[in-house]
Write a protein that binds this DNA or RNA. Structure first.
Lengths: 287, 287
DNA sequence: TCATCGACGAAAATAATTTGCACGAGGGCC
DNA sequence: GGCCCTCGTGCAAATTATTTTCGTCGATGA
């Protein structure tokens, strides 16, 4: 657990003085990591010893230990609070894109439920056939990626971004199949319909989407990904990075569950690529 | 410029004592961020004042300022040195995937040349037609994503992951067109052939690939993305995150260059989506 | 040979942090 | 109601960490 989260979640249990300290930390990270204990104490209108005690409370050995921990988290956390890119200069745009992407990963990680992913991976690893659905560009990428990750592990899988096909595939699916659907908005009604139909037929449905959305409500297992969107319409959504990482985690877990099959399949694929390409086996699997 | 890089690159100009300090910092980040100035001095076999002077040398106000800066960088940097995931427990796998993804973004950002991206965006923004090529799963995702990003900005663009089609499209392309090709390995010979053909015909070619690879050598503008690959064959390559971020940076820059056209096009798309979906215009553009 | 300069450490000075202690508010118990 | 305990807190002293000052050393060059 990172210290930022610890402070946020523990805030209610702090004493009044400690809450004042916490509020400053959460509100002005930049100040907090650069301030001395005295400056921080003055700003929170408490005494330095109270700050020390606060640091101990949140699991640090000393104030400086605390600051280091804070700074480690702050790398991501501080910038999250920054508004949009400073300018349209290439260097600023790059920093904005990359920082937002790292943040998306960070936020998603914080909210992630490993036990749920384990369950998801379990279902997928035991599926006779996996269908990955997603439309609209972003989710179609996720569906395709999931297919791309899973077939290497020996799964039987097909991706579709066509609503009609999705419905037909769902209707044709059988009991031990699994449908994984992605929807960034959670409002893909056609996908929700597929989920509903599938559940009626006793088929496992897994959604990667916003919690508490129509798509989420229609699915059996829901990997909720709820991230704030920036206001900049020109910058592609950083949420894609979070979705992509979830795909990777799921794929990794499936690989470990089907380790033998995965290893054999990966080796077969690699062998073909190496022979067919240039004999260099240090390259990654699939350009 | 982050402090880690400053130390690495400035190492040669340091005095012998300072080099010893630098070596400890680079070699044992974890120790460095937790140590007091005395401990650090002792381990480097120098006196505390030398450490203070070192901190000033690398642009920090004081030792504690230095430590905070170090810790900010270390969040990514330290972990980079960690080997593979600790276990196959879901939580560890998730942390591994996400940390590696953040690292890929971090490393790519460090090596990025904003001026080059600006040039790339300039060519794309003025192109009459853009072709995005990529095969093999990872690069096909990148090519598709680039199309997906660019059409929203009013660019005329098509993506292809089919070698034969790529060659035909290249042959059919005209002078003011631009071809953007992605290759994670840099060894996609078919893509290199397209680049060579295109250059013979005076068509701008842009590669997102490993520097100093066959594909890079065949292209006019090369966005080099050179990241180390982990040894874990079960985890999807984290380099994808870096490539995806590069796509986003390029797309953002193109959007700013064609701001008017982008705005109009984005608005048109949004309007259709809102009308056609559920009237909720807070959702992102394209599910 | 000697002046000069930069690197460096010892010690002093300063600043920051922690500890010990005491006070006061609030709550439970007799 | 009064007593006592606990907890949160600040003050002051003690401790510890950091920075500054100043002087030495060795290399360099006139």
């Amino acid at each position: 657990m990172d210290i930022f989260t610890t402070i946020q979640e523990g805030r209610a249990q702090f004493s009044p003085s400690e809450q004042r300290i916490a509020d400053i930390l959460l509100g002005d990270f930049e100040f907090a990591v650069n301030a001395s204990i005295i400056e921080l104490a003055e700003r929170a209108e408490v005494s330095p010893p109270t700050v020390t005690r606060f640091c101990r409370n949140v699991g640090c050995q000393s104030f400086s230990d605390f600051k280091v921990n804070l700074a480690k988290t702050a790398f991501i956390g501080v910038r999250y609070l920054n508004p949009e890119a400073k300018s349209t200069e290439p260097a600023d745009v790059a920093e904005d894109v990359i920082t937002k992407a790292q943040n998306a990963l960070f936020m998603m990680h914080r909210a992630l439920d490993p036990a749920l992913l384990d369950k998801v991976a379990d279902r997928i690893s035991r599926a006779e056939m996996v269908y990955t659905f997603g439309s609209g560009g972003n989710s179609s990428m996720i569906a395709t990626e999931l297919q791309n990750r899973l077939f290497r592990l020996g799964s039987r899988v097909t991706a579709s971004n066509d609503h009609n096909m999705q419905l037909m595939l769902t209707a044709a699916a059988r009991t031990n199949d699994v449908i994984v659907g992605s929807s960034f908005s959670g409002r893909n009604q056609d996908l929700a319909r597929c989920f509903t139909l599938a559940r009626e037929n006793g088929i496992t449905t897994i959604a990667l989407t916003q919690s508490d959305s129509p798509v989420a409500r229609a699915a059996e297992l829901v990997v909720g990904i709820d991230l704030p969107e920036g206001a900049n319409i020109f910058r592609p959504t950083s949420t894609r990075f979070a979705f992509l990482a979830v795909v990777d985690v799921i794929a990794s877990l499936v690989a470990y569950r089907n380790r033998k099959l995965s290893t054999v399949t990966l080796r077969h694929i690699k062998q073909q690529l190496v022979e067919h390409r240039d004999g260099d086996d240090r390259q990654i699997l699939g350009d």
